[in-house]
Design a protein around this nucleic acid. Sequence first.
DNA 1: TACAATGATTAGACTAATCTAATTATATTT
DNA 2: AAATATAATTAGATTAGTCTAATCATTGTA
Lengths: 218, 218
Amino acid sequence: MHSFTEENYLKAIYKLQETNGEVVATSALAQVMGVHAPSVTDMLKRMAGKKLVTYQKSKGFKLTEKGKQVAVGIIRNHRLWEVFLVDKLGYKWDEVHDLAEQLEHIHSEDLTNKLDKFLGFPKADPHGDPIPDANGVLPKSKAVLLSSLKVGEQGTFTGVTDHTPAFLNYLDKAGISLGNTLKVKAIEEFDQTYTIQLNDKKGAVISHKVANSLLVNK
Amino acid sequence: MHSFTEENYLKAIYKLQETNGEVVATSALAQVMGVHAPSVTDMLKRMAGKKLVTYQKSKGFKLTEKGKQVAVGIIRNHRLWEVFLVDKLGYKWDEVHDLAEQLEHIHSEDLTNKLDKFLGFPKADPHGDPIPDANGVLPKSKAVLLSSLKVGEQGTFTGVTDHTPAFLNYLDKAGISLGNTLKVKAIEEFDQTYTIQLNDKKGAVISHKVANSLLVNK
DNA sequence: TACAATGATTAGACTAATCTAATTATATTT
DNA sequence: AAATATAATTAGATTAGTCTAATCATTGTA
Ligand SMILES: [Mn+2]
Ligand SMILES: [Mn+2]
Ligand SMILES: [Mn+2]
Ligand SMILES: [Mn+2]
């Protein structure tokens, strides 16, 4: 089918489009793929030939519908395997990403669907990221950053925007887990430090940097 | 670490050494790898450079201890994933080989060991093939071919030497499953057709070709 | 609008893994 | 032992994915 390399490019383009807008620059892609710009130009020309992306010299590129389907399929695999690793094998949420990077490239729609069923059709991965369904439909999330809440507002912690083990470990240490309810008690004016109340009991003080990496459903 | 291609060569060499003796010929390996002879010569020279095989021009080659360790590791992965697919995801034993060919190349000893634990440390895969332990020790099997049994002898069906879906499907249809006890009731002198009794009740008539692909523990 | 800075592409080269065609080495017959 | 058949290697080419150095294109500022 497609090579691992192609699949990784598609996934990277998809994510860049999600956050940085429709058109993706060579340099941005080179950066996230960890290669130099000419490699991207070469690769994208090949992929344009396969109708996975549209490409106009020096203008950037976008995924075609076909390219988007492949990308979403890989993301579905990735997130389902992460659930498997955490729920079934006992991995912690900060340990699974690199393994899922390998497992996501196993080529079998049937396997993906059987895995989905085995896991009980989870809606989100261990980091709260939504899992596309078998038709490639990715539920639109209405979560917002904790840093957008005002004093007195509350919500449920449903995801992170920073997926690094360092940050995930910090959350473990601070006793903040997916599903916790939290309420903003105070925001320090000087440096936007948040004082929150977790699960209607424990209190916690977190920096703006942290509040800016936590997603909550109001 | 090692490329998928290298790992597949190592596995193929290992299996050829198991059945055809210590020294492996270029042509034999080309055949099982589905490539032409010069590709094998090239590849083996590269692999000799990495101390995975020993190679003497025009004399054939063997695995080094290091090469053997890698090969056994891949076989361990392959068989554990096959158990996972059958026991946990509900695949049938004739459907899992090609998926396991992909999954066996996931690089993580820790994952392999966690999977092993999750599966309850199985001793054999769905086809009865023994699973090497975490130290790479592969239990020596003392199973013999059913075709080596005499009239009146009995045993337990513990494995196959033909792993093709066609053969496995035939066994399903004939009601012959791993773990069944079987007793030789008669052997037709003309064509070595076996009449056997399964699990002390059902009888079955099987060709010599079939008896020659079934492994039993006496 | 021209010029400099930044970003993208082309040119040319490399490695892994493969191929076909030609050559050389080993094994088998006479 | 020489002739022949078979097996293996070398030579030269190809494709995917990458690189560095050189060139070209775009953008934003003077
Ligand atoms: Mn991940
Ligand atoms: Mn995730
Ligand atoms: Mn198999
Ligand atoms: Mn098997």
